[in-house]
Amino acid sequence: MTLTASYEHCRRLHARHGRSYYLATRLLPRWKRRHVHALYGFARYADELVDSFTAADPSGALDALADDVEAGLAGARAGGPVLPAFLHTVQAFGIDHDDIRLFLASMRADLSVTRYETYDDLLGYMAGSAVAIGTMMLPVLEPLPGREASAREPARQLGLAFQLTNFLRDVGEDYVRGRVYLPLEDMDKFGVSPDELGARRTSPALRELLAFEAGRARDHYRAAAPGIGMLVASSRPCLRAAFDLYGGILDEIERRGFEVLEERVRVPRLHRAALFARQLLASAEAGRAELRVSMELS
């Protein structure tokens, strides 16, 4: 697997499984896109190992991946379809190795932990999954000089917002996999049993619970919003589009009255296209502005 082929493999994984964020990534400068694909591809690859119902030993496969990552971080030549691109991106941007280890620890939790008692417990899990991916993405998206530290918390909040949105959308699919990401404490408060998540229709009590969790997601989106302005101009249209696309999933869930069990909620294609087009002009102008600066400096 050459480095070029590894980046292309990651791009294809991103295009197939992360359609909303892949669309937003097209608003980035071309040179940045492959690095975002590499980070997504690594995350997706690890997730597929954990969710595999055909692998004889998912735990062993995850152990092998973690060992290969550690060897690669220490300078060994990487093999496999995603690690060459991933480790190249990690090295190029000085991505924090602890974030990588935290992410793999959360993937391991999915092999044994199927319930979370409180929201704080769930936050602990999300800190190593989507949050860690968000903080790994941050160097690629380039905070403005002097804003590197302050941009980290909004990046964490955006990871929480995105993942909680996914949990609300996928609550039925997760139940089929044997996992419940809605806090048991909240389920008990609203009188919802785990078995209700496997039904074909959403009960009134479950609708109230999902509305409560959607309010939490909205809080995370609000906390994340200031972080967009902390990035260089050429990265902002991508984040605004991703923010609106994932927020659009939450809007659609609410519009459907939290009926999420019958079919997967999706943002209508025309609406996705309109959100993308809204940021396209801003992306082009930011790119031209950076090119002018480059020409002036040369």
Rank of each mutant, 00 (worst) to 15 (best):
V69I: 11
D98E: 14
A214M: 01
V192E: 05
G159L: 10
A273C: 09
R108A: 02
S52A: 10
R177N: 10
L13T: 00
V265P: 04
V36S: 01
R201F: 09
L13G: 00
G178N: 05
F86S: 00
E254F: 06
R288V: 14
E8K: 03
F258S: 03
L231K: 03
T114L: 08
G94H: 08
A5N: 08
L13V: 04
E142G: 01
T2V: 05
L239T: 11
D195M: 10
A5R: 13
E117K: 12
H37Q: 04
R264L: 14
G172L: 05
G178A: 09
S129I: 05
Q91A: 15
T4F: 11
V176H: 11
E263R: 15
A105E: 03
V131N: 07
D68G: 06
E185V: 02
L297Q: 14
R115Q: 10
E153N: 08
A55Q: 14
T135F: 02
V176G: 07
H9F: 04
Y246V: 06
S112N: 12
A43R: 00
R12N: 09
P139F: 10
D188P: 05
E263Q: 13
L87N: 00
L39R: 08
H37S: 03
S112I: 07
A56H: 07
V82E: 00
V265I: 14
G41S: 04
P226E: 09
A61Q: 12
G287F: 00
D121G: 11
A284Y: 12
V82L: 02
V267M: 07
R16A: 15
E148D: 11
R115N: 03
P268Y: 06
Y119P: 14
H220V: 04
A24W: 04
M126I: 15
R236N: 08
D68S: 14
S6I: 01
L73E: 02
L197E: 04
D244E: 13
Q157R: 14
A64T: 11
A109H: 06
L231M: 11
R101Q: 02
A217S: 08
R16C: 10
S112H: 14
D251W: 06
I100T: 01
P145G: 09
L206R: 02
L291K: 13
L182A: 07
A15P: 05
L164P: 00
D195R: 15
A289E: 14
A127N: 12
R255A: 15
I249R: 01
C10A: 02
T54I: 07
R108L: 02
A225V: 09
G134V: 05
L231R: 03
T165L: 04
A155T: 06
R266L: 14
R44S: 01
